[in-house]
Nucleic acid binder design. Sequence first.
DNA 1: AATGCAAATGCAAATAATTTGCAAAAACTG
DNA 2: CAGTTTTTGCAAATTATTTGCATTTGCATT
Lengths: 142, 142
Amino acid sequence: MAKIKLPEGYKTTKQRQAILQLLEENVAPMHAEDIYLKLKEKGIELSLSTVYRNLDMLQKKGLVVKAYMLNEDKARFGLASKKNYLVCQECKKIVIIDNCPFEKFKEELIEVHGFDILGHSIEVYGICPDCKSKKSQNSEDF
Amino acid sequence: MAKIKLPEGYKTTKQRQAILQLLEENVAPMHAEDIYLKLKEKGIELSLSTVYRNLDMLQKKGLVVKAYMLNEDKARFGLASKKNYLVCQECKKIVIIDNCPFEKFKEELIEVHGFDILGHSIEVYGICPDCKSKKSQNSEDF
DNA sequence: AATGCAAATGCAAATAATTTGCAAAAACTG
DNA sequence: CAGTTTTTGCAAATTATTTGCATTTGCATT
């Protein structure tokens, strides 16, 4: 948990710190409301708009990534360092892909399309090992 | 323009056909409202809820992919076959990545995480060649 | 430690995308 | 072309997210 440094001109508030810390602790990117509820539970006083406002600011500053996942209609927010993940379609568990395959293809993409590449995000969906074994217990016919 | 076959039990309506055809013609995934407006322009009678309902159905049937792009707050819909793209952060132009790098990493991902992989989507953002040259015209200092 | 000012917060109200209920219209079946 | 089912359009409802404004808080400077 390396403390994340806020950009110039922004103040350190307990709400802001709590949000960042929660995002650090969590593997998966979270919905704004989850963040709000989790922090309330922990006894931190904040409002949902504070959560949104902070996430928005952090996103604009590049510290946080906002993403919508398959079949979800609300945004998730996570630290910019965790932006490639596997999602189980059964239990919705999220697993971070850490050595991202993408780097190897950056060059190829630059050549083919001529873009300067600033960033990327990859979402992979499937069935996680746990759900797979639960499934095969119920029906041996696969 | 290979005609797309509707799933069993669904009727062929002019609205539904028009939506699918428009998605085939378009390189980039579109917002529901764009689809609505473009088709209205073409003289096709439909409502926005019809667009949403069809896209929803098509998505559930796997023919269409719904995705939210970086810094956008409304969904885009595109044919399932076109789900990896490059987005220019300046002009918002979208370019399809056609020989998707991902396939080569599927195996690796399966091994490492034990997921059965059903699908994926990749969004890459950067600056397109056009915007790049416009930029360097304005300031030669890069 | 007190002061002053900008930044941040909470609350309630506003906005905007998407969804839904329902009656009428269109598709397909025989 | 009559009967049944699906689809549509419209308007109203829902839900995530944003915003205005008055108040509070963080922090730099006396």
